[in-house]
């Protein structure tokens, strides 16, 4: 229950951090809420830890050309009470209430959640739902990656070993768009068995466009494009019928907390709840 020895480095700049990653077995230490338990269990034993907690430029949230940029070092608790996010993307605060517990939300970072890529984690799902763009910086410069390309498998992403995730860009949505998030877990703050987020735009009482995404139902966050297409042109009271079979053909994992059958059962229940809530919040021409 104690980590193996490692070399501890505390870079003062992002460039120093990237230089410090030029090593066979280096890991970035941000919030440490997933990495440190894994080190304590010796599931991972990196030879070098690069502590980026001092890089305060990465801990900011700003508005830039129609998007909000959330720095990788922003903590869940900071995102939950940020006024810019509250104004443009209130679904973020709604989602943060489900991320672990108070002390972990105070410490855990958005970047850490994204690069850890747990299939049931909230941030990968949010970034998929909201069409975010992940910004990576490496020795050869910066690149931007879409979530559908970034998340490859459970705990596996497109991030190279010498790259740092510096932040994520989330487009500011139409103010009339309704958004919602919910999940089912054993206790408040536990890992989600299934998590679900949705966006809805209404036009004259009918669904003009919809987004539906799930966490916990596959290896990576899943966007349900067939359901989204079927919702267009319908009224919100048709949601329950349209989502009823949405888990057919999905192959969720089974674990001690939930069977495959139970996860498939949760999917339409959550989809209905979240889509109806999003439709209720849509401020369109109803």
């Amino acid at each position: 229950m104690k980590p193996a020895p490692f070399e501890y480095l505390r870079p003062r700049t992002l460039h120093e951090a990237i230089a410090a990653l030029a090593h066979d077995d280096a890991k970035i230490l941000a919030g440490g809420q997933s990495l440190v338990p894994m080190m304590n269990f010796r599931l991972v034993s990196p030879e070098r830890l690069v502590d980026i907690n001092g890089l305060s430029d990465l801990a900011t949230i700003s508005e830039t050309g129609g998007s909000l940029r959330i720095g990788a070092l922003v903590r869940h608790a900071q995102a939950a009470r940020d006024p810019l996010l509250a104004r443009h993307l209130p679904v973020v605060a709604e989602t943060m209430a489900h991320v672990a517990h108070v002390a972990i939300r105070n410490r855990g970072t958005i970047g850490g959640s994204l690069v850890h890529a747990d299939p049931s984690a909230e941030w990968p799902l949010l970034v998929r739902l909201l069409d975010g763009v992940l910004e990576l910086l490496g020795p050869d410069g910066q690149r931007a990656v879409a979530p559908e390309d970034f998340f490859i498998a459970p705990l596996v992403t497109d991030l190279a070993e010498d790259e740092v995730l510096t932040g994520v860009l989330l487009p500011v949505p139409d103010p009339d768009m309704g958004m919602a998030f919910d999940e089912v877990s054993l206790r408040a703050g536990d890992f989600a068995m299934v998590a679900c987020g949705a966006n809805v735009m209404l036009d004259d009482g009918r669904i003009a466009s919809a987004r539906l995404a799930f966490g916990g139902l596959g290896d990576v966050p899943l966007r349900m494009e067939a359901v989204e297409a079927a919702l267009v042109g319908q009224t919100p009271d048709a949601i329950a019928g349209i989502v009823a079979d949405c888990a057919e053909g999905l192959d969720p994992n089974e674990d001690m907390h939930a069977s495959v059958a139970y996860r498939r059962r949760l999917a339409p229940v959550l989809a209905r709840r979240v889509l109806e809530r999003a439709a209720g919040r849509a401020g369109g021409r109803t």
């Binding site: 230490l29 440490g32 440190v36 502590d51 108070v102 105070n106 410490r107």
Partner: peptide
Amino acid sequence: RLNGTTARSCLLFAAQ
């Protein structure tokens, strides 16, 4: 409490 907010001290290194 670490700089004002709660934290798990088992998930922090002393050096931090």
